[in-house]
Design a protein around this nucleic acid. Structure first.
Lengths: 218, 218
DNA sequence: ACGTCGATGTATCGCACCGATACATCGACG
DNA sequence: CGTCGATGTATCGGTGCGATACATCGACGT
């Protein structure tokens, strides 16, 4: 099952929503956006592009020669991809989901990078979801640390401590962001016009489990 | 080539050096040591164990029934692995390497967790190597950020900033550790009660082991 | 004029590893 | 006595990485 790596496709669709691009340039943007580490390999990108094209979410056009305005930039033989209407619709669906799949480690960064295309309510839910997730993790690790502290090596302990600090730091970061978003929700600004065509009343595809409401545990 | 995932094998060998274990328990220790996230899957562990056994670095013994002393702990049918002499030697080689392969993202955590089995000089080299690596990364990202700052989304910028902070935090951590290790090098203390069986005092002192010269390919 | 070097560009292949799953036994709890 | 969670070994499909191949182009030196 595993949803054919939703996150990769979300990222590609999200970048292409801004402007049509060819693979090479797309990869550069992707890596820039994702913080320069966490690189995306061509071995993933090109197959993904082909799959996306087969499902008519994007359309590729081979460009032989671009008539140069400045006499430069005359590269040839590239395949420029752009979103189809279907693709835009699909992207809207992906961006409106706010379940666990949006805030887990593998996907959160990409979803966050696309926050500019996401409505404020969804942003807040994702932020809170991730915060809760990290808090749970913190709890688990701390508990397990208390149980096993004695038997552990000095360096292992230090590694654990540092890992904890990193997560705590991310939680603090999230708290700031949540604060900001809450403020924004109070003073709603017309921050961006969406594509008007896709009315798609989103049927919260996240996950049906009723226990998933945010809950806001300390 | 990619050296059959040296890091996984280092981790397994390192844990087994403390005490013989079976797969299930081994995995628990591994995950505990590695900070509870970054989990190791059985899909990696069991094949790795088999490979290690084939190369006579570890030896597995099937235990049918343990005569219980306390009337409990009578589980059956488990395969307990322990290091062979060859395996111990190999582990020493792995632990004495201090090149890039030791301080890259994929391996640093494991190597650090095994610092208790590593001599002070190697520890310091690895720590400094990683610090330099992260500083380079910081430099690159900052530079690229300066070039592209204008064209980037508010949230993308925030993501970048947070990523930078995380790395900066790790650098600060490393600086503390380097300080500590330097102090330790100056005042050499008989640190840590290790497991008594594992030869802390190296047999055959003048043993440069020509085949395994560290060197590590920059 | 020639070489070659790095950036741009598309594409594939091996394989390491994860996530899911299957199967089995055991202790504990109601 | 039934089932549930922990213990335990093992495999399998799929995703994505790293390496590589191939090709063109501008720029630079000599």
């Amino acid at each position: 099952m595993r949803a054919r790596s939703e996150v990769l496709e979300t990222a590609i669709l999200g970048i292409l929503a801004d402007s049509p691009l060819h693979g090479y340039e797309l990869r550069k943007r992707l890596n820039m956006v994702l913080g320069s580490f966490r690189a995306l390999s061509y071995g993933s990108l090109y197959p993904a592009l082909r799959s996306l094209e087969q499902r008519t979410l994007i359309a590729g056009t081979e460009t032989k020669d671009a008539p140069p305005q400045h006499a430069l930039s005359g590269r040839r033989s590239r395949i420029v991809y752009e979103l189809t209407a279907h693709g835009k619709e699909h992207l809207q669906g992906l961006l409106s989901s706010s379940g666990p799949a949006a805030w887990e480690d593998e996907s959160f960064d990409v979803r966050f990078a696309l926050f500019g295309k996401t409505d404020a309510e969804t942003r807040l839910r994702i932020l809170e979801g991730r915060r809760t997730r990290l808090a749970e993790r913190l709890e688990m690790v701390r508990e397990s640390a208390n149980r096993t502290r004695e038997r552990l090596d000095e360096y292992t302990l230090e590694l654990q401590r540092h890992g904890l600090e990193q997560v705590e730091h991310e939680v603090a970061w999230l708290d700031e962001l949540i604060d900001t978003e809450r403020g924004r929700a109070r003073a709603p600004r017309s921050e961006a016009r969406r594509a008007p065509g896709s009315t798609t009343q989103n049927e919260a595809e996240g996950d049906p489990r009723p226990g998933t409401t945010i809950k806001e545990r300390g």
